[in-house]
Every structure is written in C-alpha cells, then in structure tokens.
Design a protein around this nucleic acid. Sequence first.
DNA 1: TCAAAAGTGTTTAGGATACACCCATGC
DNA 2: GCATGGGTGTATCCTAAACACTTTTGA
Lengths: 233, 233
Amino acid sequence: MSAFAADLVILTIRKGELHVLLVVRGIEPFQNERALPGGFRRQGESIEDAAIRELGEETGMPDGLVALEQVGVYSASDRDPRGSVVSCAFLAIAPNLPIPVPAQGSDVKDAGWVPLSKLGGGEALAFDHDRILRDSVDQARDKLQYTTIATAFCDEEFTIGDLREVYEVVWGVPLDRANFHRKVRNATEFIVPTGRTRSSGGALGRPAELYRAAGKVSVLASPILRGSLVARR
Amino acid sequence: MSAFAADLVILTIRKGELHVLLVVRGIEPFQNERALPGGFRRQGESIEDAAIRELGEETGMPDGLVALEQVGVYSASDRDPRGSVVSCAFLAIAPNLPIPVPAQGSDVKDAGWVPLSKLGGGEALAFDHDRILRDSVDQARDKLQYTTIATAFCDEEFTIGDLREVYEVVWGVPLDRANFHRKVRNATEFIVPTGRTRSSGGALGRPAELYRAAGKVSVLASPILRGSLVARR
DNA sequence: TCAAAAGTGTTTAGGATACACCCATGC
DNA sequence: GCATGGGTGTATCCTAAACACTTTTGA
C-alpha cells in the first residue's frame, strides 16, 4: 500500500524560547507517543490543503493562521511500520499562537507546545519526526540569514525589538541592539514603517516604532550575517 | 486514482550557456510534446530512487552521475489530466554530461539538451513543467549565493575559472576575475587546492591551479554576493 | 615575442563593529 | 528622579571594488 501524508513543524516563541507544536498519538502505530501533527491526504486535495486540514483537526489552529513552507519529502521505505508512506514536511513559524485543542474524534489524545530545549537529542518523537524536526529548524535558522522570513514569526505589526527577539531565540545568541536596528532598517524590501508606535503592551521604556513586512518572503540582497551581529559582551 | 511521481531538472553548461535536459513524450497525455524527464514511483522505492531510475531509463544517464536535490512537491489537483498525480521535483547541476539516449521501450521518443534561452516565457513544456523549471532555476541562482553548490556544476577537479563560469552562466552577468578569485580562495569550507595544475585542455595562457570541493554542499559563512562582484566594464 | 589566461598588489570607498550617548515612557 | 527599553552618533576596522600589474604557458 502506498499513501501520501503531510507532517507539520509549527514553531513559535513563548517566554523567550522556541517551541514546537506536538501531539500525543491516540492510535497505533506509536500510540501514546509524541509526534508532529499531520495526516493522510484525501482525494482531490493538494498536499498543502491536507496539511492545513490536519492542523485544524489535530490542534484546533484555524485555517490561514500560518503560512506553510515546504521543507522536503521523506520517503524511505522503512519510515512507517504500516508500509510505504511518503510524507511531505511543512514548516510554519508564527507568533502568539493559541493553546492547541484537538477536535473531537481526531486521532490524537493531546496537543501542546514543547520547548525545543526539552527535546535535546535522542529518540523523542514517533516515526522519523526527530529528523524532520531537525531539518526544519536548520532550514529556519539558515533562512533567517538570507531571507525576510523572520517577519513571519511576528504579528502583522511589530517592533524592531520583536524582530530581534526572533533572531536571538532561533539562533540562540544575543545580538547587538544598535547594529541590528540599523541593519534591518536599511535593508531594502524587508520592513516598512507604519508611522504608529506601540503605546500599550505592558512593556517598559520608550514606545517603539511599529513596522510591517515589506512583502512576501524574499531573498535579501544583503544577508543578516549571524557571525557579525553577535554582541560581544 | 492517486499516484506519486518524480520530475527532474538536470542543468548543465554547454558552450557557455545554461542547458536543461528535456524529453519528447512518446505516450499520452502530451504525446510529442516536450517535458522534463521523470515518472512514477514503484513499490518499495524511495522517491529519490525513482528519480534516478527514471533518469537512466529516459535519458541514459548512469546512476550516481549527478547529485539530486529536492526542489518541492507539486500537487495541484489539475496538474495532470490523468487525475491526482503528486510530483516531487529534483534539481541536479553537473558538468560535461553526455548526449542523452533514451532506453529502448521507454515512454519517451527523444531526449536532448535545450538552452534555457530557447525556452523564453510561454507554455513550452507539458504539465506544469514550465513552473517546475522556473522554480528550480530560481533555486539554483539563489543557492549559488549562499551555499557551495557551484562546485557541483564542476568536475571533481576544477579551476577557479571553471567555477567563475558557473556563476557567470547561471547568473547571466560577467564577474570581476580578480575579486572573484580572492573571494572564493579565502572562503572557508568552499574549495581546497590539490597542488596540481591543468596542463592540457587546449586552453591558452598560464595553466590554472586545480581545486576540489571542500566537502558536502554547505551554507557559506560569507555569501558570494551577486550584486557586488559584477564587473562594471 | 606575442597573445591569452592565471594570479597578485594596491588604492579607495563603504559598510560592519563596538561602543557611547540621547530620547521617551511608567513608576 | 530613575529604571527601562528605543533610537542615533561615531571612531575604528575590515572587506569589497576597481583596475594596474606580473606570471606562465602555447604558438
């Protein structure tokens, strides 16, 4: 039997740490084990449609909440004990996502945000999902450098501080505040000012200017180099 | 009916121009029209295995001749008139490839190298292969900037002039010879000298030092910026 | 000895770096 | 006022850019 599935790596930042959305499987194989959300494609569905549908069923995330990006296809013949299952992995990075709630009658028992630091090494997930998760996070780290994908981690409107937090959390290094500000401010086709500032929010200090993404995710003419913006002290 | 296929975008440089490997289909749908090589996955095969097998059958390229890289999955429900066919697209870039020869009994009538310049816009290829080709070439152009993939376009041993030709042909711009030389020579984890020089080859002038790739294709710490190396005159 | 291609030197300009220093707000 | 985070100024350093120059071969 040959089947086609989608698996999703949904990343978000919570309390200054990178989290991934995981489910606990309610059925065999790998019952009661943790896995990435995902499932089988149905007739007439594109694989992207299947991914969005499964995300909604298994975690309650509404359609259109996140933009999906393909990571790759996983088709090793031994990746699923049920037989030949080809899976397409998708990556999404989004801010302030709600606590997931599996739909009644779905194949999962539970769903929740798990900090990546709590998954260190080892065989933590079902199927080849450890590998898929690692590839996806690597892709996210690389893409921060040379694309404008970081804006997808933020709200519609965001401050440069919000954007910097994305880089710091995903890269795991502190960046120089002043130089980061200038770098992204001067980059073309990255962020555009809205003219508003963030008045409320409980944050201390001077209100920050608000920006929005300049357009679709694109390749940066001048990359945000990881090595060079790291703060020394 | 749902089926899973692989399509291949094989690029090479011939006479200073970027060429793609195309076939003429021998069966319906799109009989007698040009398409990318590719075909259906068989039981127990990974999708990569299927891609390599089809490449051999349809164009006579031996196994292991090229390293394949995933481009993406194409699964729109109307992309194939036969019904629901999910295709995974692969990209390979390689030097000095032979003239293709379709195997007897394969589904293609002919195979050959076609310069990209002869395909300008329009609906030149079967299925959604125009789209797949465009996405693949875009990916190759971007990856030249921030990965060491250009070495995959060259032979096992190559000169810096060979490497520069890859950039110039794929990007379609002339680069400053001297600055390109220093940039790639000083980049870490890109190229390593072999100590030999290229004596023969019919080329005029001083023999060039030979290099080989430093390792697997990786992300460059300092990207080869397209805009900045372009020669002005 | 001449043309052709490889490789190196050198000046200059612009951007990155590492800070120091102001600005605006809540308490 | 003062702590906190946002924003700007600036001296220094480093690399990219432009192009002249030298080296090594074949004819």
